[in-house]
Simulated assay, not measured.
Amino acid sequence: MDSSLVERVRRFNRTVTQRIGALDDAYLARGRPLGQCRVLWEVGDGGSEVRALRARLDLDSGYLSRLLAALRADGLVEVTAADDGRVRTVRLTPAGAAERDELDRRSDDLATDILTPLDEAQRGRLVAAMGEVERLLVASMVRVAETDPQAPEARACVAAYVAELAARFDTGFDPSRSIPADGALLLVATLHTEPVGCAALRVHDSWAAVKRMWVAPSVRGLGLGRRLLAELEATARARGVGTLRLETNRALTEAIALYRSAGYREVPAFNDEPYAHHWFTKEL
């Protein structure tokens, strides 16, 4: 990694944490640190399962327990457990809801304070830059790993893939009629433990087929499809594969554009996939 890039990220982090008051032990002058304030906001009006809260905030279970204990001691949240004790739910008390509303008001004031010194053009630039930074930070939080195809997150991705193809293809999609991906290596992308994408590689000696490429609508535009494809290519190279092949349907225009931009060359049909209109290959 380029050390100058690392230093620029660190400098940005220092500026942001100072400007938003994250260094204060009493965030927004409310007598508690930022971590506790964020948990109050994230719990929301309807409450939250503790494990879901931990996943959304990417927090260590011990640290989250300490945050919740401090909020309970202040009378701001209550934590209840199901009969089996495995599922715990946290909810705001009336005092917690009032505190969350006050934090919202003060957060609006802080945002206004950041924008006020800037002219109209600068405000637009700042907000646009913040949006771009947010998208890229979300992209950086996505994790990609080889996953057992029978794991719940893998099955969820494949089910979503099948459902989307059924909705988008002119003739619908019946996976029993399609060339199977049995025995394929499966990569699954997760964001806050939620599955948001997958891609499979079925190896045939010196060549391999790319299968099951899918990205959740909620994270499209973050470059995840390209990242999954690159990870499949790296995996194929590591296994001595020299050629990748894939087929796709004409309705998947975004996928077709991705394959072409990634160096895949359209070729005549090399299989009898009933749902395919385009066939591609790439030499690694």
Rank of each mutant, 00 (worst) to 15 (best):
V50H: 02
R155C: 03
A262N: 09
R54S: 08
A151Q: 01
E233V: 13
R227K: 03
A255M: 04
L136K: 14
L191E: 04
L115F: 08
H204W: 01
L136Q: 14
W214K: 01
G183L: 00
S3A: 01
L110A: 15
P149G: 07
L244V: 15
A163H: 08
A269L: 05
R86C: 04
R260M: 09
R123A: 13
L137M: 14
G197R: 00
L258K: 11
L258Y: 11
E132L: 13
G225Y: 00
R30A: 11
L5C: 15
D182G: 05
A128P: 08
R38E: 14
A262M: 12
L92W: 01
E247S: 00
L57T: 08
G172W: 06
G62F: 11
G35V: 15
A163M: 07
W214R: 02
G242S: 15
R38V: 15
L228I: 04
T116S: 11
G85R: 01
R100Q: 12
P217K: 05
R56I: 07
L252N: 12
V127P: 07
L23T: 10
A82R: 13
Y63A: 09
A22G: 04
P175Q: 00
L137Q: 13
P268F: 09
A230Q: 15
A276W: 13
A199K: 09
G46M: 07
R88N: 08
L201N: 03
L40G: 01
T248S: 12
A200L: 10
T15Y: 02
A81H: 15
L228V: 04
A121E: 15
P217A: 06
G62H: 12
E153V: 13
R220E: 05
P195Y: 03
N249P: 06
L53A: 05
A208S: 05
G21T: 00
R239N: 13
A139P: 06
D60W: 09
A163V: 12
Y27C: 02
A251P: 01
E153K: 09
L201I: 08
G46H: 10
N13I: 04
A276C: 13
P33A: 07
N271P: 06
M141F: 07
E132V: 10
R10S: 07
D182E: 11
A70C: 06
P268R: 11
S65F: 09
V9P: 01
D109W: 12
G75N: 04
V87E: 06
W214F: 09
L252H: 14
D272Y: 03
F12P: 03
L284H: 11
V9C: 11
R202P: 00
L224S: 05
E231M: 12
D74W: 05
L5H: 14
E231G: 02
R100T: 10
R155Q: 08
E194H: 10
A97L: 03
L115D: 06
F270M: 00
E7L: 12
D60C: 06
G124I: 07
A216I: 00
D182R: 05
T147Y: 08
L40Q: 01
I114Q: 10
E102G: 08
L222S: 05
L59N: 05
M130R: 12
G35Q: 15
T93K: 05
Q150S: 14
P149E: 14
L222K: 04
C157F: 01
V6K: 01
A139Q: 02
R19T: 06
L115I: 05
L284M: 14
G47K: 04
A238W: 03
